[in-house]
């Protein structure tokens, strides 16, 4: 099963930044929507601001560098070969800036660095992930038990969950949301990394 692109994807002006502000904002929204649903379909976690996919699919280890393949090839979402159109880098950058503002992506390095070049694509917001994890823990009766992040993301119990195979950093963000609400506690190992989570 392959991703079905929306109709607008084959509309050549879609790949030119429209000069009219109103049109551009509509175009931008359609792009954001497309990027999010494309990333959701392909389970893309990280992209850089040139539209290169950096992390995709079920992630088991946290190491970012390993998944860095094909640095120079812009994702096909920005390049429509059928009509021979490509969104230029500047516009992609602009899109990511806009998505950063609206919370659709979060910067990889650091909290609110505006000059970040790598982004987590929040096709589900951290809040949504948090809600999903919470639901899952409650419905499977694991409230109050200590779970490792690996168990949540890659355990057998979460096999059918959307967050199965989630990028550990994104899961971490989701857990932090829960911690902030007082619904979870983080247990750290001696290196300061998260060893386990207790959700109440």
């Amino acid at each position: 099963m392959s991703f079905t692109f929306p109709k607008i994807y084959n509309f050549p002006p879609f790949f030119t930044k429209q000069p009219n502000e109103q049109t551009w904002s509509a175009q931008r929204q359609q792009w954001v929507q497309l990027i999010l649903s494309y990333c959701r379909f392909h389970r893309i976690w990280i992209m850089n601001d040139r539209g290169v996919v950096l992390s995709q699919g079920d992630v088991e280890s946290e190491s970012l560098e390993d998944s860095q393949q094909d640095v120079d090839s812009t994702s096909e979402v920005f390049h429509n070969e059928a009509i021979d159109r490509q969104l230029d880098i500047d516009t992609i950058r602009l899109l990511f800036k806009e998505m950063l503002r609206s919370g659709d992506v979060s910067p990889v390095d650091g909290k609110s660095k505006s000059n970040s070049t790598q982004y987590y694509v929040n096709w589900n917001r951290p809040d949504d992930w948090a809600a999903m994890v919470l639901e899952w823990i409650e419905s499977t009766g694991q409230a109050g038990t200590v779970l490792t992040l690996y168990e949540i993301a890659n355990g057998d119990l979460s096999l059918k969950q959307e967050f199965h195979g989630i990028h550990p950093r994104i899961l971490e963000m989701a857990i932090k949301v829960l911690v902030k609400r007082g619904r979870a506690q983080i247990l750290r190992d001696e290196d300061g990394r998260i060893g386990g989570v207790k959700v109440q």
Binding site: F11, P13, F14, T16, Q18, T23, A26, Q27, Q29
Partner: peptide, 21 residues
């Protein structure tokens, strides 16, 4: 209208963005 700009020049289309919106 909206514009499609590429090497061969500008093409003008009806504004599908706003129609979709």
């Amino acid at each position: 209208l909206c514009v499609d700009q590429q090497i061969s020049g500008k093409h003008y289309y009806l504004n599908e963005f706003l129609i979709a919106e």
